[in-house]
């Protein structure tokens, strides 16, 4: 079909309040934005006519995305800069289209090609407000937030769920001077989990097993301090406002999607810190989402 020749790839960010959108909600919001912008989108024929598009890998409720992608088929050529401008005119604060460019219409879908994911996690450690990690993990397992909307997401828990059920715990014992967790302790914990090559996570009554041997692109790196905190896009300042330097650990890691999806970084973290107290995951950001280099070469 001639009209399928224009495949426009939109790069976008999900941040601020809108990080709480589920994958399905993001897709629907983009779809509506495209209609408002009156881009010459292609419509599938047949029983249920709908806009022709293909979203990238799902981003869970609560996770910020800074390098997300969405492919849209157009019936005619439209200057990408013009498309970007028109989307900007009818855009949403928190779902920002940052770039638009044409890609090979015959290329594989985003979910097949964009299997490399880089994450940044912001962890509050020690001090008032940081909570017991054990309670956090326990609570998070019972958490079902957003799953019904969360198509494609591995997500058991919506968003930054380690605070789940734990805030009361923090009120009670968070401030009693538990030892501050250091960046290297966190990395050591993660290294141990990754070295086992597998992760088993309770989801309701069942266990979900992840094979970690293929799931890690590059090993977690952590740094401490105030400077890092200010670079955490998408988080309200209030999350850090009352914290002193040294209360924040920034963790970055490279993950890779396998046939069975991507292991969520917060699951790794929970497993790594299962016996540690006094930490709270403040934010999860998918900072990059990119293609398999080997495929790029071929």
């Amino acid at each position: 079909m001639a009209e399928m020749n224009f495949r426009l790839r939109l790069d976008f960010q999900k941040h601020g309040r809108l990080r709480f959108l589920s994958h399905l909600e993001v897709v629907r919001a983009l779809e509506r934005m495209i209609r408002r912008a009156q881009l010459p989108y292609a419509v599938s024929q047949g029983f249920n006519t709908h806009m022709r598009y293909a979203p990238g890998p799902a981003l869970p409720v609560g996770t910020v995305g800074l390098d997300e992608h969405f492919d849209l088929w157009l019936t005619e050529y439209l200057n990408p800069a013009l498309a970007l401008g028109r989307l900007g005119d009818v855009g949403l604060r928190g779902l920002t289209i940052t770039a638009a460019s044409y890609v090979d219409p015959r290329a594989k879908g985003l979910q097949a090609t964009h299997i490399h994911e880089e994450y940044k996690l912001v962890i509050a450690v020690g001090g008032a407000g940081a909570v017991s990690g054990v309670d956090g993990v326990a609570g998070a397992e019972g958490d079902a937030s957003g799953t019904d909307n969360d198509v494609g997401a591995e997500g058991d828990a919506g968003g930054v769920s380690d605070a789940n059920g734990a805030e009361t715990a923090s009120d009670a014992n968070g401030a009693n001077g538990a030892e501050t967790l250091s960046a290297s302790e966190i990395v050591d914990g993660l290294t141990r989990v990754i070295a086992t090559g597998a992760l088993s996570v309770r989801r309701g009554k069942k266990n979900k097993d992840y094979d970690l041997t293929q799931a890690i692109d590059w090993m977690p790196v952590a740094c401490e301090g105030q400077a890092a905190a200010t670079t955490c896009e998408g988080q309200a300042a209030v999350d850090y406002g009352e914290r002193k330097a040294g209360d924040i650990v920034i963790l970055t890691m490279g993950l890779r999607a396998t046939e069975r999806g991507t292991v969520r970084p917060e699951l790794l973290l929970r497993a790594a810190l299962v016996d540690k107290q006094g930490w709270e995951l403040k934010s999860v950001v998918r900072t990059r989402l990119y293609e398999d280099k080997e495929l790029e070469v071929s």
Binding site: S145, D148, G158, G165, A236
Partner: peptide, 26 residues
């Protein structure tokens, strides 16, 4: 908002509470 936001990771469908929808006053 500062009090509500930290609770949103712990509830179903947090997008009910965000405001900031298109055409909403922000």
């Amino acid at each position: 908002w500062e009090k509500i936001e930290p609770l949103l990771a712990r509830v179903e469908k947090p997008s009910r509470y965000l405001n900031h929808e298109y055409n909403a006053r922000v």
